[in-house]
Design a protein around this nucleic acid. Structure first.
Lengths: 344, 344
DNA sequence: CTGAAAGCGCTTACAG
DNA sequence: CTGAAAGCGCTTACAG
């Protein structure tokens, strides 16, 4: 194992050519003769030549690195998203710098600063729950770094976006509950502001409308922390249960909410689904563990990461400014289990 | 927002100094007068100067990037490890390139190649289950890139290692089962070869010995895939259950094994803990979801990532070769739930 | 078709 | 205490 990797200079010396010629031959420049190209490439391969990325970056003003901001890698959903992102990145020789906002606006801003001065070529973002001001993203975009939003997106910037079809997922889930005979369907969801919350609420509302079931604002409960705080979920649940006309089913917007809810309901001795049916959005690795098994809407996390990265690299590698943007929405998958079994 | 970031040259021009002086002032060189330093730093700060990392890397032959190889980010354990690694990295301005081996030797080798020619400054590895040949790691180390192993380690290379105290964790868990009155304790574990498997088996064995319970090889069941394949786990369980003298408790080595087992046992209508007690190593986010709640040994994942990264950076930043290596073992935590309740 | 030269933004031995 | 110069490994306009 040689300590110093082989460089263009070394090849030039060995082959008695100038280093410009080597450089061009390696990139298949039309200016170089076929014979020469072959010799150079063969030598490079034989000696396991790899270009020095730092030198290339310095020259090209491109780092081949992509920044990612998401709330937390510990969430199964995001772990799967990352795998999708990496699958594209490694195929195209980019590397990915992951940062976590922990749903915190200040942290998100710090991550952004960090990533910026590391001079990334592009940025992938799922916006934190706290974020209402998008000016930092705008200035990054204006300074020439393309951004693609996924999952938690905004339309305040013009760019590609990739989401799960939250609307359809919520619609399907609500319709399933209605089909099972439930009439008072509550919705415990995350912060009112975020994009996914709005889309899910719309799907829920439309499914009710279609079935002629009246919408009741009392049945919509927001958790500002998105369920990170167990107490928050318990409060919303207990409010629901003490309504004059309590719900017969609950549609939860996330795993965290479902987890806390199951604990609480079990504690209170409330039987699922006989006293209260329950279902939720989830990328939990083992929804069958819930007792009874949890009916879920599964988000296409890997696929989202993959497509978001592909769209970002389109922007990064595009020769000229892009002005027409795609808004991808990927279907979700309804998985029916015992927690929503109707009384029939 | 200026498109082009400010450089040393810009500062030099503005302050009518040479760029050598700026460079030195910014790094607090003793050669530069206090007054000058102050002026330069103030200007740099005011204009939000950040050094161009590519240029620095090229000059210093250091990239400030650290490679990580682990089996899969989708495992909660590794997601937490990553958070620990990142916490150190971001504080010290390193960035982390994560790669996944998926327990596959070939993939691990590819990741290694990729990382190598990206010229990382150091490497953090949790070895894949398939790996028995460590020559690639050795040559990387010999070529000057420090490596630290964590979780799945080897002693074939001389370097720092960081593990959870698997021995003690297994010992504690086994002792707990014995204390609860169980006498035939089976152990369903991962591939026989890997380090963690051996350590856990040793803890298990010693706890039995101490209690005067005879060791029975029939009660030790290996899953080559580590439980990725549900069938594998079911086979081992059914073998155990059909023994002439079947176990009264099971100690599982991982979440995956516990998950598949619970499904299988529930299917077979076997009551936990009355017919069979169950406990396992786990970093599952919600062990209380198991029905009944699962007694677990929790691994200090965040802490492991943090300490491994700290030790690696010690090696990376050390001026001279290090020859004395630390072997850190971090305590695990036994969390007792209903799945191991004794009959008393 | 090939080469000499300049330059990306920094660091650092060498001079003064 | 400060500056001019060389060089890290590459790319690419300019010549020939």
């Amino acid at each position: 194992m040689s300590k110093a990797p082989i460089t263009i200079k070394d090849i030039a010396k060995a082959l008695k050519l100038s280093h410009s010629t080597i450089s061009r031959a390696l990139k298949d420049s039309y200016q170089i003769g076929e014979e020469t190209k072959k010799r150079v490439k063969a030598y490079a391969k034989a000696h396991n030549y790899h270009p020095n990325l730092m030198a290339q970056s310095l020259k090209n003003q491109k780092t081949r690195s992509i920044g990612v901001i998401l709330s937390s890698v510990s969430k199964v959903f995001f772990a799967e998203v990352i795998t999708g992102i990496e699958s594209v990145a490694s195929a195209k020789d980019y590397h990915v710098i992951i940062t976590q906002s922990m749903e915190n606006f200040e942290k998100e801003k710090n991550n952004l600063d960090q990533l910026t001065w590391r001079s990334i070529d592009g940025l992938l973002v799922s916006i934190s729950a706290q974020t209402t001001d998008f000016s930092q993203f705008k200035s990054i975009q204006e300074s020439g770094t393309p951004i693609v939003f996924f999952d938690r997106i905004t339309h305040e910037l013009e760019t590609h976006t990739v989401i799960a079809d939250n609307y359809q997922g919520a619609f399907d889930l609500t319709k399933h509950l209605i089909d099972q005979g439930f009439k008072r369907i509550a919705h415990i969801t995350s912060s009112e502001e975020i994009f996914t919350t709005k889309a899910r609420l719309a799907g829920y509302t439309d499914a009710l409308k279609l079935a002629g079931i009246p919408f009741d604002q009392d049945l919509i409960r927001y958790c500002e922390q998105g369920g990170v705080d167990t107490k928050e979920v318990e409060n919303q649940l207990s409010t629901l249960l003490s309504l004059d006309n309590p719900p017969d089913a609950v549609f939860a917007a996330s795993d965290l909410i479902s987890l806390s809810s199951f604990d609480y309901l079990q504690q209170k001795g409330i039987n699922i689904p006989d006293e209260l049916a329950f279902a939720g959005f989830s990328n939990f690795s083992a929804p069958q563990l819930f007792n009874p098994g949890l009916t879920t809407v599964k988000q296409p996390a890997f696929e989202m990461g993959k497509q978001a990265m592909e769209l970002l690299l389109e922007l990064v590698e595009s020769k000229r400014p892009v002005s027409s943007f795609k808004h991808v929405s990927i279907p979700t998958e309804l998985q029916i289990r015992k927690s929503t079994k109707g009384r029939s």
